[in-house]
């Protein structure tokens, strides 16, 4: 049985101005799967992610979520899609725990305090939960941004190099947490340079390149990443 795609891109051309940064992308992501995106620095992985979630307009082709053209300004899209593309999307006067609590309450999470406490535990933020974002290290801010995405319900989670600035233990913990979300029926799209992280999470992998952007089995992509 073929899964119905939650997110689909057809001949999607991405870039800034009129210049595409990579070859057109055609890919479909079903619920309960994880798509890894790999490619060298500057290949266009982040641009693809930003276009998939409607932050950049496509230069050509289409991108659809749940059968409709992506419009990140609409409430249903925001309700269903969580993103971590930027580490510094914080209110300077709210503490880390308050960011999580407000997000949980805003999404109508039942027992928000418990949900927040659970994410704080998962991401090892207990000692710094009461600190302002400006008082956190870059790695702690990264963890807070990831926790804010996971403290709320979502159908699709889009992450740009989620393993960046995380230590090895935290990377493994994050991969396990995301794998659990995928097992629970969510879809995850993530860009990464970490072969182990990709191997632990991705169902398939999109390789972003100038000439073409094929979707390949995870094992092939991991082997290519190990080879450098």
């Amino acid at each position: 049985m073929t899964a119905i795609p939650l997110l689909s891109a057809d001949e999607l051309s991405v870039g800034y101005g009129a210049e595409p940064v990579c070859a057109p992308v055609t890919v479909a992501v079903a619920a309960g799967t994880a798509l890894g995106i790999v490619g060298p620095n500057g290949a266009g992985k982040s641009t693809v992610l930003q276009t998939l979630v409607g932050l950049l307009p496509p230069l050509g082709g289409t991108v659809q979520f749940d059968g409709r053209d992506v419009d990140e300004r609409e409430a249903p899209f925001r309700r269903a899609v969580a993103t971590v593309l930027d580490d510094d999307a914080f209110f300077p006067s709210l503490t880390g725990a308050e960011h999580l609590l407000l997000t949980a309450r805003g999404h109508g999470v039942g027992d928000p305090e418990r949900a927040v406490a659970a994410q704080i535990e998962v991401f090892g933020l207990a000692e710094r939960a009461g600190a302002l974002p400006s008082a956190l290290s870059s790695g702690q801010r990264r963890r807070l941004a990831l926790a804010a995405a996971l403290v709320r319900p979502f159908r699709l989670l889009v992450l740009d190099e989620p393993e960046r600035r995380l230590d090895a233990q935290m990377r493994r913990r994050l991969a396990a947490r995301l794998a659990a979300a995928v097992a629970g029926g969510a879809a995850v799209v993530f860009a990464s340079h970490d072969a182990d992280f990709v191997g632990a999470l991705a169902t398939r992998v999109l390789v972003v390149d100038d000439a073409s952007c094929p979707v390949v089995p995870t094992a092939d992509a991991v082997a290519a990443l190990h080879e450098g």
């Binding site: 969580a82 993103t83 593309l85 510094d88 999307a89 997000t103 805003g106 999404h107």
Partner: peptide, 11 residues
């Protein structure tokens, strides 16, 4: 920080 506006399920 436009991402802050996108974290809630509101248009």
């Amino acid at each position: 920080s436009p991402a802050a506006d996108r974290t809630l399920p509101l248009s």
